[in-house]
């Protein structure tokens, strides 16, 4: 007596890509990768007030091998950088990265010897969340944007290979990060 009774019988036509994207975004597990202040807000994201369990996402996978998303929640120190990369490499494809907070996005206020100036120096970042730390509301917003706009629309098979090749060609043609000028206008 649920919604399934209201759906008319028949055939739905869609792409395999669409089905996979839909399934991927519906079972989308972050790894527990708590670093600093943002990790506390990331825990709050799963705790009662904000309750990621409402859409079935309160489980943080303790093993990177079971995770789809790495939330870089806080400042990445030079000492932590190889660990972060190793955790990323241990995650199976397809995988996504969220840079939570300004430190993970750009180094933030800690422009010094100890902190890597942004998680994107180590791993490809899909979405950046501003804030110091971002509120759990912002994390929820970022999570839904990531799921709806990036995970769900990820290309597959031949399209994925073509997208990889296009991205690689673009990356080879693009100037190195330190040569990029005037991007922040």
């Amino acid at each position: 007596m649920g919604i399934e009774d209201k759906i008319p019988q028949g055939v739905v036509l869609t792409t395999l890509e669409g089905v996979f994207g839909w399934m991927r975004q519906a079972s989308f597990w972050p790894a527990t990768f708590g670093l600093a202040c943002c990790a506390i807000e990331m825990m709050t994201y799963g705790a009662p007030r904000f309750d990621a369990g409402r859409w079935g996402q309160e489980v943080f996978r303790a093993s990177p091998r079971q995770a789809d998303l790495m939330i870089i929640s806080g400042r990445v120190s030079q000492k932590m950088a190889p660990v972060l990369r190793q955790v990323y490499d241990q995650m199976p494809n397809p995988k996504w990265v969220m840079a939570m907070g300004v430190c993970a996005s750009s180094g933030g206020m800690f422009n010094n010897y100890a902190i890597v100036q942004g998680g994107d120096h180590l791993v490809p970042v899909d979405i950046y969340v501003p804030g110091c730390p971002p509120r759990p509301d912002m994390l929820i917003d970022a999570m839904w944007k990531l799921r709806k706009d990036i995970v769900m629309k990820r290309p597959m098979a031949a399209n994925e290979i073509a997208a990889f090749e296009a991205a690689e060609a673009a990356a080879l043609a693009a100037p190195a990060t330190h040569e990029m000028k005037g991007l922040l206008r």
């Binding site: 030079q78 422009n111 010094n112 010897y113 005037g182 922040l184 206008r185």
Partner: peptide
């Protein structure tokens, strides 16, 4: 610091480090 780090960061002759920040050109 990592075991292979060179220098002792809190000394006054050690630079703070950091990179230039680009904003609006």
């Amino acid at each position: 610091m990592p075991d292979d780090w060179v220098g002792h960061p809190q000394r006054k002759d050690y630079p703070l480090g950091g990179i230039p920040i680009e904003y609006k050109g």
